[in-house]
Design a binder for these strands. Structure first.
Lengths: 364, 364
DNA sequence: CAAATTCTGGCAATCGTTTGCCATGGCGCA
DNA sequence: TGCGCCATGGCAAACGATTGCCAGAATTTG
């Protein structure tokens, strides 16, 4: 039955379920049931079948199964166009974490990139509507949509990561950025800082709103005016973090009255900014405190080592998979629409009390 | 025909080819041919069919097609276990490049991790033998193999990346590491360096052999003894680059006669090593020159900026896909068994002539 | 011991597409 | 005008698994 016709040019295909059945002396359907439902078949028969399958090196054909049952076991992850730049590994790490969780649950991970071009959108929609994907995890704020077909009505469970899209009906997993940045800002205030530079990613972006909001909340709580913080950046993507940091350095140079603390929204920004500052003769944290986002391992080896807010990549991946699997087959419980995972502040030497602080001399 | 039975709890499936055929007033087979073979069907009929398909938002079912034709259009990439650490983005970037090339050629990319555990091997083998994967790109030196089944005889085209496995019969794409490191070593010698520290990744690894070999060749060419270079590391993976750099710093401290130049086999190693050296009061490049591998963008913002050998990630990805597609359906040409892409040396301030050089005073 | 109940295993239809084969119709050539 | 050939479209059989339904066997119960 295994059509090893040995015809020249014919790809031999592996053993079929029928081969296993024949070797075990049972019917095909019995094999199928033995391999799927543990309880549905006699233990002795089952052992015989297992042995036969192992002996033949039988592997069920995933497409045939998928066609028949009408579902695949492939999840696609939709990543924004150009990802990989800079020191931060959050997306690759999240990818890794998601993949691990999925495999443990019997799913595969297919990757899709959502560029600005129509071909990438079409590709994603084909995956969704063509039955290849069973669910999707999306790291972009835009759902692909091309002539009539939209991912939104592909009937596919979707969860959003990094961005909160629960308003749009997508279960989302996000970090508690607002709270984290509020706390670190409060800490800076406690150290004596009164003027801040905030280095932004794309303006209006979910992360920007949350993080900047956190800064403002901290200022407010301390009775400081909103003007205590000046914004830089806002026009470039996170992928161009180094570039943003350099621009921020220029902005800093142009300021009449200098901030004493900087809050960067990615490690890349902080790294290139700090490099420029040091070239300009400033010392960190003596003249300027710096804190940033992402928790890139390389921060530990900067001079001075950078204080950074670590993104809990492992947790995020697991949470996303949990949300997605629950959407695929509901556990009965209420279907949690938003999971917040906690970031962790990593305190290092890049922040300190300002030397020219308005407070009386800091403890020495 | 589209089985939208509207039964509660039934997933509605999209329109079928039969629906398109009915709307266009032709037979199913005609639709199939129109969508696949451009020439096989009347242009007018074809237009009618296209219109009907678009109107219905028809997307062919990938699993049904795959089952029928006996091939999938999914490629899997096999990544070594834990990838993501440190500053280097080579693997994520390669992944990105591969994905882009594949999509342009009508393929999908599925990711698989090869950990040390049996479950991950089994997962990969299931993908291979279960007909899900049409080909594989592997970034590991070990082919998965579990009770009888081995990736080697899955009848799957495989190409290797980063590692040269052409000896094992796998078409491979690699960088010209030996040459690159030979050149940079020669440059260091020209600058006046006579004693070197080589910081290794896993010992015996392809990269180690090639890169260390390059160093030795340069020494030999300059008439220097093999003892001019001392090795550090060799017991940890590339993922633990920072750790390796720290150990190397300890090794350096223990040396009676100090090298004046360091060749690190990853940027991570160079970064943590340099950080330790500077903490110890050495100046770079005054007391010590450093060069490393990978071309991480962050190197530009270290102090001093790091000289590094950039891995041509984009080219590697494209080359791997080209090799794989050729293996999938041979173009008739001889099937190139090994593609070498050229690394690029990025010269920055971390190397200079040694101050205590045996040569007469370097140009000032 | 017979009958009722459970359990196990087999038959055959089905998932949605592709494709070999054949029938039909139109066209050109003599 | 008559014959043959080519282009076009339709029928139906695959691809390899799953699963509803039923028959027969095994087991228990009255």
């Amino acid at each position: 039955m295994s059509k090893n016709k040995d015809v020249l040019g014919e790809e031999p295909s592996g053993p079929l379920m029928a081969d296993v059945a024949r070797l075990a002396g049972v019917a095909i359907s019995t094999v199928s049931r033995a391999l799927a439902n543990p309880g549905r078949v006699n233990e002795k028969t089952r052992a015989k079948i297992d042995a036969a399958a192992k002996q033949l090196g039988y592997t069920p054909n995933a497409m045939a199964r998928g066609l028949r049952v009408g579902k695949s076991n492939t999840i696609m992850i939709i990543l924004p166009g150009s990802l990989y730049y800079g020191a931060s590994q959050v997306i690759p790490q999240v990818l890794q974490s998601i993949n691990k969780s999925l495999i443990q649950n019997g799913y595969n991970l297919m990757i899709a990139n959502l560029d600005r071009d129509e071909i990438s959108e079409r590709h994603i929609l084909d995956l969704a509507f063509g039955g290849t994907a069973r669910g999707a995890i999306i790291l972009s704020s835009k759902l692909p949509e091309v002539d009539g077909r939209s991912l939104a009505n592909a009937g596919l469970p979707i969860v959003s990561m990094l961005l909160d899209m629960s308003d749009a009906g997508l279960p989302s997993v996000v970090t508690n950025d607002r709270e984290a940045v509020r706390e670190v800002t409060a800490e800076l205030i406690r150290l004596g800082h009164r003027r801040f530079l905030y280095i932004a990613g794309p303006e209006g972006n979910y992360h920007d709103v949350e993080r900047y909001g956190g800064v403002l909340e901290a200022l407010d709580a301390a009775g400081l005016p909103e003007e205590a913080v000046v914004r830089s950046g806002g026009n470039l993507d996170y992928q161009q973090g180094f570039e943003i940091g350099i621009q921020a350095a220029d902005d800093f140079a142009a300021l009449a009255v200098k901030p004493t603390a900087v809050i960067a929204t990615s490690d890349d920004m902080a790294i290139s900014f700090m490099s420029r500052m040091q070239q300009g003769g400033l010392t960190i944290p003596g003249d300027l405190s710096i804190v940033s986002f992402d928790g890139s391992p390389v921060c530990a080896f900067c001079s001075p080592p950078l204080t950074t807010i670590e993104q809990p990549v492992e947790d995020m991946g697991q949470a996303a998979v949990a949300l997605l699997l629950d959407a695929i087959d509901p556990s009965g419980k209420e279907p949690a629409t938003r999971t917040v995972v906690r970031s962790r502040l990593i305190l290092r030497e890049s922040i300190a009390a300002p030397t020219a602080s308005p407070r009386k001399h800091p403890a020495r």
